[in-house]
Amino acid sequence: MWTQLWSGLGGKLADRWVAVSGPALVFWLGGVAAYAVGNGLAPLVRLVDRLSRAALPAQLIWVAVALAAVHASALAVDRCALPVLRLLEGYWPAWLAKVTGDRVADLHRRAVAEQAEWQLLAAVPDRSPEQTRRMVRLDELRRRRPPVDRLLPTRLGNRMLAAEDAPRVRYGLDAVVVWGHLWLVLPEATRTELTAARTAVNRAVAGVIWSALFPLFACWTLWAVPVGIAAVLLIERLWLPVLVDRYAVLVQAAFDLHRFALYRAARWKLPAGPAEELDRGPALTAFLYRGEAPAGLQYQHET
């Protein structure tokens, strides 16, 4: 029994270590490869030979130190994932205000032009297949960005902000304020999907960080620079937007399908229709955020 217990515990720890430290291990193995390219295999062969001739306790200590160092670097990068994601979303420091303003102004002009084009296409009675495809594309672009007065300078930020703004526009709920409350009443399956999607986003951001650090190995081989830059562009331009879009869709779906659970949990009467919901949404947000209750509020207790 104890053997099975420790075996199962060891398997879970190994899985956890691989999940957290896998990208870090790839990074450091890439560093070893860069060292081999710049200095040849002979130094590595000598090191491996020296370790193989050492006593077993010494070998275990060296392996443990190496694994601990890999894990520590993985944890350090994971702690940086959220600040880096904020930068990728377009929440840039004040000294980049000019760049931010120019980028937002350009996106604003593009959004206004695309909205005008969509309205023109919507007025066409007999649209061609090309016009229909263009209209669908424009509608998709509009869905992935917030109102034009709240644009951020990056498409990742605009996609995330669009997901945060949708509950306010549709239901009067401030997603940032009520998200913690909604999370507690979501079904377990929904929370599992959201957690998996957000974890995938964080890991992709960690991949961006590791790739950006890879050019440090240029001290051994200049190939580390193009490899690192290529990996950053691949993850940031192709992989990360897909993951962010999936997470944003799930956040919006959580509000679309489960927002009334907030009313029930707070013992508020459910709104009778969309117009009433737009009136009650801000009041429920203020109630959950500040404890401000509208005059005459009566709780709806379950019987």
Rank of each mutant, 00 (worst) to 15 (best):
G8F: 10
W28D: 10
G31E: 06
A33L: 15
R46V: 01
V48Q: 11
V48H: 07
S52L: 13
P57M: 09
A66V: 12
A68W: 10
A72V: 13
L75W: 06
A76E: 11
A81R: 11
P83W: 09
V84W: 05
V84P: 01
R86I: 03
W92S: 03
L96D: 03
T100E: 07
R103C: 07
D106M: 06
A111D: 08
A113Y: 06
A113I: 02
Q115A: 14
R134N: 07
R134Q: 12
V136M: 09
R137A: 14
L138D: 01
D139N: 09
E140K: 10
R144G: 15
L151F: 04
L161C: 05
Y171V: 00
H181E: 13
W183Y: 11
T192W: 04
T195M: 10
N202Y: 03
A206W: 04
F214Q: 02
P215A: 01
A224E: 01
P226N: 11
P226H: 09
A230I: 06
A230Y: 09
P241S: 06
V242D: 07
L243P: 00
A248Q: 01
A248P: 07
D256A: 15
R264T: 12
R280Q: 15
R280M: 15
F287L: 12
A293P: 02
E302V: 06
T303K: 06
